[in-house]
Nucleic acid binder design. Structure first.
Lengths: 156, 156
DNA sequence: ATTCTCACGTCAACTAAGTTGACATTAGAA
DNA sequence: TTCTAATGTCAACTTAGTTGACGTGAGAAT
């Protein structure tokens, strides 16, 4: 006998009894996160990178010449936690740091062309998932999704 | 000068330039997850529990008499990874295991009354966030959110 | 009745991604 | 010079997982 189709490795959807009307929504939040990031994580893993590296690339792409300290603030992690992944990105020349032009004592970070390519590809994988989902529900549905997520995100 | 309002500990929203139309949606997915789970995680932490424990309680609540093997399947983790948190829940008598009534060689898991209370409280914290967000957009908005998240979750 | 096998349990070593604390470096500011 | 702010680094720890190896207990098979 076959082994009853072991299926996906994570939680599979719709296998649990709903005890509450909102359980389905609750579970969708779990699966949604994974659904959005799965392809990007695979892409990154193939390059020897992972989520923390992507987070750094994502932020630096949107805040060129950000200082180390500001990056730490935005990411919400300690400088020691930042050290390893940041060091790898610098070593691989996906990121460059320069001391501030004349003034300041902080180091400013910026993506290289290679870093930009990788950041864009990884984020594209995530945006593709979103775009396809939005396409299925149309602009009003997408707007509603944004409104709901905004309200949820406010609980931070 | 003040220190420019050090703000929240995580990523704070809306601080990044948008390079792409979908960047806002992408970031909402990050913040949304944290927004939904924050209160629940604090509640659990106060009890000396965390997300893995909640995941176990959540699943067992919705699949009473689930076997260890099936639980491993649903959670998508190894039996070694399950061992610690499951052991704690049994030790604290939030969960009981019994060998199957007559047949089978598997152990069946079930919540105790105390386990049910905690599972419900933790999940309630998450559902409260969802409910409030849904209330702000009305039933059609909530339905659209579900549709979008369903489409995203399908990428698993 | 022994043996086989399945479900479960556990030990050890490892990885990823963080944490805190302590201390060193480096370069403007006083 | 000396002070201090921004950065860098070392060590020890935590959480939440991983793989591999091996042990146990009970039903099934011969």
């Amino acid at each position: 006998m076959q082994k009853t189709a072991t299926q996906a490795p994570g939680l599979h959807r719709a296998s649990l009894t709903k005890l509450n009307e909102l359980d389905a929504a609750l579970e969708l939040m779990y699966y949604g996160w994974r659904g959005m990031t799965l392809a990007a994580d695979e892409y990154l893993a193939a390059l020897g990178l992972s989520r923390p590296h992507h987070r750094i690339l994502y932020v630096v792409a949107r805040r060129p010449d950000i200082s180390i300290g500001a990056l730490i603030e935005v990411l919400g992690i300690s400088k020691q936690a930042l050290n390893r992944p940041l060091g790898l990105l610098l070593e691989r020349k996906l990121l460059v740091s320069k001391r501030s032009p004349e003034q300041h004592r902080s180091k400013l970070l910026r993506l290289t062309a290679a870093g930009q390519r990788i950041e864009q590809s990884a984020s594209d994988h995530e945006r593709k998932v979103l775009r396809e989902a939005f396409d299925r529900v149309g602009a009003p549905g997408a707007a509603a999704w944004m409104a709901v997520m905004g309200a949820i995100a406010d609980n931070n």
